[in-house]
Design a protein around this nucleic acid. Structure first.
Length: 208
DNA sequence: TGTACGATCCGCT
DNA sequence: GCGGATCGTACAA
């Protein structure tokens, strides 16, 4: 992992990292092209204390062991028929992460639409959808950002005009953790899950 | 706009 | 078996 990314991911709470990842650019090197996307929606998962997290009470399995690796490690797991992308955010043995729930296409749109032939507005507005559009699966699980085909390019980021903060999606029956405001998204951006089409900013898509 | 349901993998009972 | 950090289709209003 290159030094700027290590610095970005170190020494701050996972909630703050989740918020600041909005607008940052992810790059995926494929055999034929480079796919680029900007992050529009994230969720923070706070490890051992978080009843909504896979690492709750340090519960460790074959599936989630990447969470105990250092910040910058990629954690991908399968949910039903879909794979979901997370970035580990804390030092080794602190199993916190950020789930990437939405991204806005920047480059390689034709490849993404070939991977996922749906309308543009539904291409990457969900955690499983964006993985299908990028053509990713569990093979990247346990690898590291910027030391694999997937990298975080901090220099190319955009700035959200406004960030919305809500409860996480799909965390049901987990007490206060079901309502904790740990989901962050670029207000008005169309590439965000579970937003009504009427509330979108068609001029700037929520960017400054 | 919303609710219901099946697809289909992993971890638990 | 059952349920989950999901998604697409079917169907109702």
């Amino acid at each position: 992992m290159t030094e700027p990314v290590a610095t970005f991911l170190s020494g701050r709470p996972t909630q703050q990292i989740a918020a600041e990842l909005l607008g940052k650019q992810l790059c995926l090197q494929t055999p034929t092209t480079t796919l680029k996307v900007r992050i529009t929606e994230t969720e923070a998962y706070l490890g051992a204390i978080d009843a909504g997290a896979h690492a709750y009470q340090n519960h460790r399995t074959d599936r989630n062991q990447a969470l105990w690796s250092p910040a910058g490690t990629i954690y991908i797991y399968q949910m039903r028929a879909w794979c979901l992308l997370n970035i580990v955010t804390q030092p080794a043995d602190v199993p916190e992460c950020v789930l990437i729930r939405g991204v806005e296409p920047v480059a390689g749109l034709a490849t993404m639409q070939a991977n996922r032939p749906v309308a543009l507005t539904r291409l990457t507005d969900g955690p499983g959808k964006l993985m299908q559009a990028l053509g990713l699966d569990k093979r990247l699980n346990g690898q590291r950002l910027n030391q694999s085909d997937l990298s975080l390019d901090l220099a190319a980021g955009w700035q959200p005009a406004h960030v919305s903060q809500t409860a996480r999606i799909g965390i049901v029956g987990k007490g206060d953790w079901s309502t904790a405001p740990l989901r962050y998204y670029v207000t008005g951006n169309p590439y965000v899950s579970h937003v009504s089409r009427r509330s979108l900013d068609f001029d700037h898509r929520g960017w400054m």
